[in-house]
Structures are given as C-alpha cells and as structure tokens.
Design a protein around this nucleic acid. Structure first.
Length: 765
DNA sequence: GCCCGTTGTCATAAT
DNA sequence: TCATTATGACAACGG
C-alpha cells in the first residue's frame, strides 16, 4: 500500500541520516537491525494487507522504539547525564545482537524474495523526479547548478537499479542534502494520503509511467517533503511568518485548492432551530429557488472536501506543535543559506501549503501555476459559478475573500421561496456545483481556519466550543502536569531529605560535604528517584534534553557527547565528583600529596575554608543539615568562641540558603517547562476542538439538508381542495411543539420566525 | 575582553 | 520570636 511504502521511505530516511551523522557507535547496529526489521516487518504486513501506522509509534511517547530509531532521547539520557559509561553499557552491545542478526537476516532475505515482484525506486530518484517535473518553472533555472539535473536524469533512466547503492553513494558524496532540500517546500502532511493526493499521484503516474517511475515515487516524495518541511520549520525566523501569513494564505487557498475544482456558494440559513427559517420566503427573488435542491446535489461531495481541508490544516497545525519533538535530528540537514535551491524554495513556508499542493509546489514551484497545470478546470469554475450560478454573491466574486468573507450571505442562501413552477423549470435542472458548500458550516470553517491560523482564539468561539461540546478536553487532564501539583510534595519531604543526605555525605566524604546537601548524584540511577523525590523537585532532564534536542547545535543530550558538556555539580554527590574529577592515577603515582591537597582545597567552598581556618571541630555538612536541636546539642558539646559561633551560624544560613536557591531555580525552570508543555497540550486540545466543531457543523449541515429535502417532499405533495399544489410563496410548513407539522400561511410563519429570532438574542442579553 | 550561563550569597519577605 | 524557606538581585566564575 501507499502508506506502507511511505513508511518504508521514512524508515529508510532515518537509516540514512543516522548513518550519515552518527558516529561509529555500536548503537547504530542495533538501530539498523530494528529499523530494517521494522522495514521488513512493515513490508510483510503490507503484503498481507495489514495497515501499519508506525507514525503513532514514532510520535508517541514510547521511548524504546522511538529512541532506538531516532536516537536516545530524554527518557534515557535523564539518568545518563555526565555518565559516559552508561551509554556504553546501555546501548553498545546488545546481548541478543546475534539473534537479531540471524533474525533480521532471515527476514531480509525473505522480504527480498517476496519483493522481487515489487517495484523499488531509489530514494534519490524520487527527489530527482520532482525536480525534473518542472521544466518551465522558476525552479528549473537554478537546478543545474546543484547537479541535481544530472542525478534526476540518471535516476529516471536507471529506475530498475537497486536503490541502496545509489542512495548511499550519493549520501557520501553530499548530494543527499541537496536532494533533500528539494523537499523543503513540501507541506507537512498528516500521514494519510488524501483522495486528491491519490488522484494527483494517479495523474502524474500516468504521465510518467513511460519514464519508468513507479507509484512509490510519489509516496516517498510525499514523505520526504514532509520531513523536509520539518527541517524548514526549524528556521526560527520563518516559523513565525509561516504560521501567520503562510497559514492565512493557506486558509484562503484551501477554499479553492482543497476541492480541486469546486467553489462554495452558500446555501442555507443560519439556524436550524427554527424550521421556519428554512421555509422559503416570498420576499426573495425567484432565482434563489434553484438553490433549494442544490444542497442535495452537492452535499455528497462537500464533506470529503471539508474533511480534507481540515485535515490539511490540522496536519499543519499539529506539525507546528509537534515538529519540535520530531524533527530535531533533521535540522542537521538544513540547507545552507546560499543554496540556490533553498533560496528558490524558501518561499514555501509562506505559500499556501497543504497536502494537495505539495507535489505541485515541489515540482512547479508556484501555487498559481499548480492550478492551471494540474487542474485547469479549477480556475474557471469559481469564476463562472460565482457569476452565473450565484447571482447572490457580490459582483467581484472572483475574489474569494469577497465571496466568503461576508457571513451575512448565509441568510440569503437558504431558499427563501418555494415556487413550484419555477422550481420545476429552472431550479433542479441547473446543477449548481457551487451550491450547498458555502453554507454556514463552510463559513464557520473558514472563520475557524482563520482563527486557527492567526492563533488568536476568539473568546466567543472558544466559549461556544466549550458550551457546544461540554468539553471533555484534555484541559482538565493537564492539571496533573501543573506546576502546583508538581511542587506540592516539596514541603513535606524536604526536611527528611536534608537529614538523610547529611548522614550519607558525612559518612562518605571528609570534605566538600556541602555539595551533597539535598542532592544526590544523578549518576547513581538507583538513588536518583529517591534523592530527587526527597528534594521535592524532579529535575526533568527529559525536558532539558528535549529542548536541547530541538537545537541541532546542542547534541549534548546524546549520552556519548554529554560528558563534555556543562558540569552541574550540584546534582552530583561529592563522592561522584571526586571519582570523576580526581587526577588520573599517573598523577597520584607521582606521590604529590601536595597536589592532591591543593586540588582538595580548590574543591572546598569558601565556608569550608573559613571553617577550617577557624578550626571548627565539625563538618559544614553537619552545621548545615542537622536539625536545630541536634545542631544546638552539637554546639553545646564544644567550647566555641563567639567568632566561631558566628561563623557556624553564617555557614548554616548560607548553606541552607544555597539549597533554597538551588531549589528555587529548579522550581522556576520546572515551571517554565511545565508551562511550555501546557501550551503544547492546549494547542493540541484547541486543534482537536476545532476539528470536532467542524465535524459537528458538517453533520448539522447534513441534517439541514435532510430536513430541507423532506420539507420539499412533503410540501410538494400537499394539495388543496382543488387538487392543486400549494404555493410556497403563500404557505409554509411549520413544526409544532408536539411533533406535528402544520401548513400555515406564510405571513404567520414569518411572524413566528421573527419571534424566534428574538428569543436567542434576548437570552444572550 | 565581552557575553552568557551557573552558582553562591545577601537582603528581604513569607511561612 | 525564632528558624526556615522562598525569591529577587547581585557578583564571581568559567567556558
């Protein structure tokens, strides 16, 4: 299936990148096995018709699989900061590597045998094909300089060649970056191929089948561009504008592009609560009767389009929220600023992007061109439809904004009048491709898209969403992550921590006890949880790591690089520090105890120096961490001068304040990180709520259409005493409170309709 | 030498 | 009132 191929391409890409940028770590072998295993397994599953959605595994917080593929992340590096040994022990040589070897070798052979009838296209050819597809566009001019044309041509001609060799060789030659940059314009995709993607792929495939390009090409390019967009989005400068202008442009473009040839005339009333609103009004021009049936004609098409548009938008939004977690490694492949291709495509984030136009843009570089080339009928339809079939829309209806901008149009679109004769002649026979789409739901969706893109959530709509859906949203669930809950345990356990740590550190070390205060070594994984729990704050290195993982320049989260990073000594026990920082045995062999003493002196804090100078008879650790009573007892045991007592009190005060400051800083940092996570969660919830609202509006519109058709049917069958049909201009059907339907004069219906319109307004007041 | 992050310290308020 | 904790502000220090 296409999805399986896309997955394969994704995994292939992961493999390639890991090979390219990771060191010769033994971890890679395990990754290779697993990714290849996944690859083979996916192929097998796809062969037997099982859909595999690995995206969920990759994007979800499942550390083992995710980290094996993407590299170690926070969950693992949390306990491996400052500890190179853990990296070697943890990842280096898997005890079952031999089994894995046999297993995956067998799998690979099996899959190769089974894949004999499958068409495999080299990954580079995918990109090359995309470049090649744009001979007239502005992109083509800059291509030759990067040598991509050569690659593309060779790739196209050499379709049957094995892919791995080509891919790896090009990677070594540095071509891969250029090739990957081609996809930088690609929009983010949610993973599922939309109908239009498939259609487009079909078209392109048919066009290029003679070139030997398989269908997989499209799928891979699709996937490739998704990843490249992630890379592109790492550019902080463009990200903001992308979310704003680009997104806004996207919303506009979606209106046209999302349906590939359809435009949206409005078609209904604003409220379904009153059936009288659906009743045709005699005050409206007869031409509007055409629209009475039009929803039924076009209603079947719109849901898909709406869904598709929304999926496009959601994919962008979600990726915008999630890309920081998923694309960190890919940022390494960012294009150099001067790269002609990248500059050529640099506008992509600002151009309307969705899944549908991804291929267009990648190959043609221009949105407007896309329409003319790929769906020429699209251009003419909205204009023609708006001018001829939709007399209601403004005269300058070629502008989408003017067409969709006015929500007041919604009031016109529901058939205000039901004229039987006119309905028979002119109405149904005019297949209005625009009818039924620009309905309330559509207008709402448009506004929603604007909302979502502008990131300015209308409070009114937000409250409406809350009311409408009685949110079971994750908002309440997030309370567990709140800073308050996080820090709630602090007070109860801090005292015990200090006493416990004081006992341990005083027993283990004769100097720099102060460093042990309240914080155990984070290299001691067994003690980590207990120690940190005692302090009351979980130093969420996972978040630190994730944050720095977003930054390509900060690879310190990788365990094998971390040991050269910062030395946050206050998280390490003095013993651990000593073990790590003591001079090598060679220095000790020199017998220079003086050097060691100097080193120890350097390790001592100022207060320890002072205490030593004042000949304080007990350790600073005891001074600081003993409970008040024990502390006083200790003081009473010794005959201390006033200066000594003063120093001891200062040492105690400063030591406690030092801990407090550390806790305070940790807490502050955790608060910030929690807020960041809350923002992400809220963005997810917001996107989900918007999606749900669109769903509701869609179903609402379908219900409206159903009601309208039923109304028509019932009304059309009614006959007066003379056997003639009732005139819709004079009579209307109305639902009574008991469920019965009454035929009443239209004047009465209008009055009641007005009355019901006022009620909600009064309620709002 | 400057910048920046980390850490310790002080003053002060809060508990 | 005293001890402790929390926190802003500042300075020292090192990369």
């Amino acid at each position: 299936s296409g999805r399986a191929v896309a997955l394969i391409c994704l995994l292939e890409d992961f493999k390639t990148k890991k090979h390219k940028h990771s060191g010769p770590s033994a971890m890679l072998s395990l990754k290779k096995y697993l990714t290849e295993g996944l690859l083979q397994f996916t192929i097998l599953l796809s062969l037997i018709g099982v859909r595999v959605d690995v995206d969920t595994y990759l994007t979800s917080q499942l550390p083992p699989l995710r980290e094996i593929i993407l590299g170690p992340s926070s969950a693992y590096t949390q306990t491996q900061f400052h500890n190179l040994r853990n990296t070697l022990d943890g990842y280096g040589i898997h005890p079952k590597s031999i089994d894995l070897d046999n297993y995956f070798t067998a799998r690979r052979l099996l899959s190769q045998v089974r894949a004999l009838d499958r068409f495999q296209v080299p990954t580079t050819e995918v990109n090359a094909w995309l470049v090649h597809r744009d001979p007239e566009g502005s992109v083509s001019g800059s291509q030759p300089s990067s040598g991509l044309t050569l690659e593309s041509s060779s790739g196209l001609q050499d379709v049957t060649a094995p892919d791995n060799g080509v891919r790896e060789s090009e990677t070594e030659q540095g071509f891969s970056e250029d090739l990957e940059d081609l996809g930088a314009v690609a929009p983010p995709v949610s993973g599922d191929l939309t109908k239009e993607d498939i259609d487009l792929i079909d078209i392109l495939w048919r066009q290029d089948i003679d070139l030997g390009a398989g269908r997989e090409v499209f799928d891979y390019s699709h996937r490739q561009k998704e990843q490249d967009v992630d890379k592109e989005l790492q550019d902080g400068n463009e990200q903001e504008t992308w979310a704003g202008e680009g997104g806004e442009a996207l919303a506009r473009n979606l209106l046209v592009d999302g349906e590939t040839g359809e435009s949206f005339p409005a078609q209904f009333s604003a409220d379904i609560s009153s059936i009288t609103e659906a009743v045709p009004s005699e005050s409206e021009p007869p031409v509007l009767q055409n629209n009475l049936l039009s929803p039924l004609l076009t209603g079947t098409e719109s849901p898909f389009d709406l869904e598709q548009q929304w999926q496009d938008l959601m994919s962008i939004m979600e990726m915008q929220a999630m890309e920081v977690n998923t694309s960190a490694s890919e940022i390494l492949y960012n294009t150099p600023p001067g790269d002609p291709l990248s500059t050529n495509y640099s506008l992509a984030p600002n151009t309307p992007i969705n899944q549908n136009v991804s291929l267009h843009q990648a190959s043609l570089g221009g949105c407007s061109q896309d329409f003319s080339l790929f769906s020429p009928e699209v251009e003419s339809l909205p204009v023609a439809g708006s001018s001829t079939l939709l007399p209601l829309v403004p005269s300058n209806s070629t502008s989408l904004n003017s067409t969709f901008g006015s929500t007041n149009l919604g009031g016109f679109f529901f058939p205000p009048q039901l004229n039987g004769t006119a309905n028979d002649t002119a109405g149904p026979e005019l297949p209005d491709p625009l009818g039924g789409l620009l309905d309330e739901a559509m207008l709402d969706e448009i506004s929603l898209m604007d909302l979502a893109i502008e990131e300015g959530f209308n409070p009114v709509q937000a409250s409406q969403l809350e009311e409408e859906f009685d949110s079971d949203s994750g908002l309440s669930l997030d309370s567990s992550h709140s800073p308050s809950s996080l820090s709630s345990s602090e007070g109860s356990s801090s005292s015990s921590s200090s006493s416990a740590s004081s006992a341990s550190s005083s027993a283990s070390s004769s100097f720099s006890e102060e460093g042990a205060v309240g914080y155990s070594s984070d290299s001691e994984t067994l003690d980590l949880e207990e120690a940190e729990g005692a302090v009351g704050y979980q130093p969420e290195y996972s978040k630190f790591c994730r944050m720095s993982y977003q930054d390509p320049s900060q690879l310190s989260c990788l365990p094998y690089l971390e040991h050269v990073g910062h030395n946050h000594t206050y998280n390490m026990a003095p013993s651990a520090l000593d073990a790590a920082d003591l001079p090598p045995p060679s220095a000790l062999k020199k017998g220079s105890k003086e050097k060691q003493a100097d080193f120890l002196d350097k390790q001592m804090s100022r207060d320890e120096h002072r205490a030593r100078a004042m000949k304080i008879p007990f350790t600073n650790d005891k001074i600081i961490n003993l409970p008040v009573e024990e502390f006083n007892e200790l003081l009473s045991k010794y005959q201390l001068s006033e200066a000594q007592l003063s120093l001891i009190r200062d040492i105690r005060r400063r030591g406690k304040n030092k801990m407090a400051a550390q806790n305070c800083r940790k807490r502050k940092l955790d608060t910030i990180l929690n807020l960041e996570r809350d923002v992400e969660d809220l963005q997810r919830d917001k996107a989900r709520l918007l999606r749900e609202k669109v769903e509701f509006l869609r179903s609402l519109r379908q219900m409206k259409q159903k009601v309208q058709s039923l109304y028509q049917e019932v009304f059309g069958r009614l006959r007066d005493e003379n056997g003639r049909p009732y005139s819709p201009s004079q009579y209307a059907l109305q639902y009574a409170g008991d469920g019965s339907v009454l035929l009443i004069p239209r004047t009465m219906a209008d009055q009641q309709a007005r009355r019901q319109e006022r009620k909600p307004k009064d309620r709002r007041k």
